[in-house]
Design a protein around this nucleic acid. Structure first.
Lengths: 211, 211
DNA sequence: GCTGGAATGTTCATGCGGTCAACATCGGGC
DNA sequence: GCCCGATGTTGACCGCATGAACATTCCAGC
C-alpha cells in the first residue's frame, strides 16, 4: 500500500473513496447535477475512465453520494432533537421531539442545499448518458423518515395508520425544503422563512395531535 | 404566410409555437431533463440552431414549458374544486374546497409527472450549457399557490400570518407529490398511496383549523 | 526472489447536447 | 422589381458518458 512517502503514481491506492469524496464535494457545491464523473476524476487527478473500475458509471457514483447525504441529514436531525429539552409529559416530549426533528430536517436542507437535493432528487441522466434501462433497486431504509415515523408512533395512542402519518410529516418538511431551496420560496428573506417554517411545523404537530 | 397547400418549406411559419408544443410533449414524456433543444427541433423538422431565433437557448424554452405546466396544474385544481359539493357552513365549505384543491394538486402531479416536475423543478443547466450568469428574474404569480392561499384566507377569521399558512399547505402537497413521483414513495401501491394522500390532507386541514 | 494473472489506470474513439459564427433563403415594404 | 431583415441551415467547438484496447503495477504462488 502507498506509504507516507507518496508512492502513489500509477495506482492511486484509494481511488474509490477519493472519488466519493470529490463527488460529495461537488454535490455540496452545486447539487446532484454537478456531480459529474469527469470532474470528480479531474479533482482526484486521474483519467475519467478510471472511475469505471470502481463504479458502474455516473449513476452509481451519484447513488453513493445520495447515501452519504441521507446519512448526514439524519445526523443533523438527531443533533437537533438532542438539543431539545425533555418534558415530563411523554406526549409533550414527543411533540417537541417531532418539531425538533423537522426543524433539523429543514435546517439541514437550508444549510446544505446541494447535499439535500442529492439526497432526494431522482438520479437524472446527464447528457450523453443512456436513459437507464436497469430496474431501480429498492430503496434501503431512510433514516430521516424512520426518525419521523418513530416519533409519531410515540405520540400515537390509537395505533392507526402510523406509516401514513409519517409520510405526511415527511411530505411537509420535504416540500418545504424544496420550495425554499429551488422553488418559488427561494429568495424569501430569512425572517419570513422562519415564519413559514414554524407555521409548517405547527401544521405537522397539529396534524399529529388531531389523528 | 404558408397557405393550406404546404408552402412551408424553408420558413416554418409558426416555429416558436411548434417548438413549445414539442417541448411540452417532451416534458410530459420525461420531465424537464428530457426537454432538449435538439430533440424539440428534430420533432418539428428543423435544424437545432433554428430555435435560437425564437429562444435565448434551452433555458428559456424550459421556462416557457414551466409556465404552461403551472397553468395546467392550476386548471386541474380548479376543476377538482368545482366538482366538490358546497356546504351551508362557509367554514366547512372552505375546508372542503381546501382539501379538493390539494387533491387536485397531487392528482395532477401523479397523472402528469413530467409536467409537474417541469412546473417546479429548478431549471438545471444541462451538460455543455454554461452555468447561467444572468440573475434569475422574479417569479410571476403562481396560480396554484394563490388558490391555496385564498382558500385559507376564507377559512381564516383571525387574519394572522396568512401567507405562511398558504406556504405550509403548499409545502405539504408539493412534498407529497415529489415523494410520490420521484422520491422514496415512488412504487407505493395505489391503495397505500391514497392513504398517504388523505392523511396528508387531514394534516393540512387540521393545521388550518388549529391556527 | 521471480513471474504471470488480476487489478487498476490510460488512451483513443463514438455519440449526444448546447451554443456560436458564417452563410442561405424567403417575404414583404418601398 | 429590389433590397433588407427575419428566419433557417451548415459546420465547428466544447463538455459529458461510455466502451474497447492497451499499459502498468501488485501480489499470490511457486
Amino acid at each position: 500500500m502507498p506509504g507516507i512517502s507518496g508512492g502513489k503514481n500509477y495506482h492511486h491506492g484509494d481511488l474509490r473513496n477519493a472519488l466519493i469524496g470529490a463527488a460529495v464535494d461537488l454535490a455540496s457545491e452545486g447539487g446532484p447535477e454537478r456531480v459529474v464523473l469527469r470532474e470528480a476524476a479531474r479533482r482526484v487527478g486521474v483519467s475519467p475512465t478510471a472511475a469505471y473500475r470502481h463504479f458502474d458509471g455516473r449513476g452509481e457514483l451519484l447513488r453513493t453520494v445520495r447515501g452519504h447525504a441521507r446519512a448526514r441529514l439524519a445526523e443533523a436531525m438527531e443533533r437537533a432533537a438532542a438539543r431539545e429539552p425533555g418534558a415530563d409529559d411523554p406526549a409533550l416530549a414527543a411533540e417537541r421531539r417531532l418539531a425538533a426533528l423537522c426543524r433539523g430536517y429543514v435546517g439541514f436542507a437550508v444549510d446544505h442545499p446541494g447535499l439535500y437535493r442529492a439526497a432526494f432528487g431522482t438520479v437524472r441522466p446527464a447528457a450523453g448518458e443512456p436513459p437507464a434501462g436497469a430496474p431501480v433497486p429498492p430503496e434501503p431504509e431512510i433514516r430521516a423518515f424512520t426518525l419521523l415515523r418513530e416519533t409519531l408512533e410515540a405520540l400515537d395512542r390509537s395505533g392507526g395508520r402510523r406509516s401514513a402519518a409519517g409520510a405526511a410529516a415527511w411530505s411537509a418538511v420535504h416540500g418545504l425544503s424544496l420550495l425554499l431551496l429551488e422553488g418559488p420560496l427561494r429568495r424569501l428573506p430569512a425572517r419570513r422563512r422562519d415564519d413559514v417554517v414554524e407555521t409548517t411545523l405547527a401544521m405537522v404537530v397539529s396534524g399529529a395531535r388531531a389523528r
